[in-house]
Nucleic acid binder design. Sequence first.
DNA 1: ATTACTACCGGAAACGTTCCCGAAAATGGT
DNA 2: ACCATTTTCGGGAACGTTTCCGGTAGTAAT
Lengths: 336, 336
Amino acid sequence: MKHTTIKDVARKLGVSVSTVSRAFNDKYDIKKETKDRILSVAKKMGYSPNPIAQKLTRQRSYTIGMVVPEFVNSFFPEVIIGAQAVLLKKGYQVLIMQSDLSWETERKNVKTLVDNKVDGLIISLTSETENTGYYEELIASNMPIVFFNRVVDQLETSKVLFDDFKWSFFATEHLIVQGFTEITHFAGNESFSLTKNRIQGFKAAHRKHQVQIGEIMYKGFTFEDGESLAESLLKRDELPQAVFAANDALAIGAMHVFKKNGLRIPEDVAVVGFSESRLAAHISPTLTSVQQPTHDIGETASNLLLEQIENKGLFVPQTIVLNGRLNVRESSVFLR
Amino acid sequence: MKHTTIKDVARKLGVSVSTVSRAFNDKYDIKKETKDRILSVAKKMGYSPNPIAQKLTRQRSYTIGMVVPEFVNSFFPEVIIGAQAVLLKKGYQVLIMQSDLSWETERKNVKTLVDNKVDGLIISLTSETENTGYYEELIASNMPIVFFNRVVDQLETSKVLFDDFKWSFFATEHLIVQGFTEITHFAGNESFSLTKNRIQGFKAAHRKHQVQIGEIMYKGFTFEDGESLAESLLKRDELPQAVFAANDALAIGAMHVFKKNGLRIPEDVAVVGFSESRLAAHISPTLTSVQQPTHDIGETASNLLLEQIENKGLFVPQTIVLNGRLNVRESSVFLR
DNA sequence: ATTACTACCGGAAACGTTCCCGAAAATGGT
DNA sequence: ACCATTTTCGGGAACGTTTCCGGTAGTAAT
């Protein structure tokens, strides 16, 4: 019932509390034998140091907060898993909050986290324009923050990004090389710089191959958005040869309406996605998609954050750009 | 930089520490005026009680832990969102951990949470057999726990369940009524009672309609499992008229290999899923599936837990069974 | 034998709260 | 004016650690 404390262990062994403490944090002078003895008895008694008391004395919460726009799609959960992997190993706890795509709840989430004295924050924004003032204050007050993927450039923090330009370029080039030269881009939400970068890559590939740049259609990032964009495409009766979507949900939504209307993929229209969701390989046809290193994103964001936390004071924000990969599958290979 | 503490506030006002404490937890005797004075000055100084110290003295953390098998599929994230909705409103924090489908990490997760003095736990198990002894101890030590979906019957706690029997029955009956009388059930992992209940429902529907009971195939719950089961079905060259899968991932995996092999859905083989993932309505053909009230599950689990935490001592475990719904879509309607 | 280390270890303060206990002040009844 | 009661407050222990400071042995050198 009651937790066994360090005192119980000390009493049982007839040593002092400080000695037991030393046994657990081996930076202090303690004889090897007594240390081993203490450790084994402690284990037998089921003792482990109370994290809360440790936090109090160490004057650190050993908790970091993560806030993401949503986590019903697999992208963010995967980076969370990556982050937890390194953070938990270092003795940190992870508080996860999701903003429901609303910057107001994002603001509230961050405030809750700060009130709870997190040592640092890992954030992906819901909006690049709304909370910047708030974040500036936070940064000025020395709160370590790392942003990832959905970031705002002006903020002076570490960031981990994906090379959206490059991989958008490659994905587009892949379509062109396959012979699909009329490509429409479902670009997602216009306000993100990530969106802009992907558009740049999209255009660059066209220029390189001297193909006329295809249409760019904005909307959200959901299945439904993909469906409605595809429908509007069908309605005006001039289908492109291929669709390059800014994420897999858009792509899958589009595929769904194409197929419902009797179109064959990729014969009638090819499709390429982005961000490689879990199911890209398990739908029909399998979906070509840009794979982001989700796990890596979480890990490097965490490492960056820990670095900043440890080196408080002398620290320069870094931006790390991670690499990806294009998984070519059935939805985009030209069959003659 | 430095946190202002309760002492700073006390010194500034010339009152004692305990008085300031009283001002913040208004259950003790304090004059209204002094309380107001303290509160306003404290606010001006930017003071708020240190949650860590509070946890240490109160031996309560106002934190509840959630541990789920995974959260890359949308099911668990959705119940997490439901749970957070009620918990955060009541001033609780939520610590989320995922067990990666391994009972060892589940055990570690729970231990971490317990070490951190969570006030209660909401758990969905990775295995119904492995950690029961551990959970029994935990329950005996008075830790409030609510299990959901993947539970073990013997444990004396509150549970929130889905009526797997009933909805498996309805889903199967739906197929039979549509004229699909040879139905194979992809049952998922054999060890869960949820699996057993669904099988019972599956059989009961057959009996009611006097149809010979179809085959039951066990395996995991992933896309890959669905694919491999479908392949083994194809290999032996005697296809059932329909497949009823224990979750949508299985169903989608199966649909994928059926379609890859030129089979039409539902003409050649119908498919019904379970647990209604986000994308059931957005793939081709759209997937008939049993919808679970994910949000509700999270909410009721939280309410049950809070009830237990508040009424510590006099408390009887409850089991709440929630209702669902069958979303009939293209993958299972008979076309002649 | 005295000195000078070194290697270990214990005592106790500190972290920031809560809350019990008792004391002082205010109130009320006579 | 006095006692009894209530209201309001301060002192200080407790929560479970870490870590500084000092002290005791033991060893080696003089």
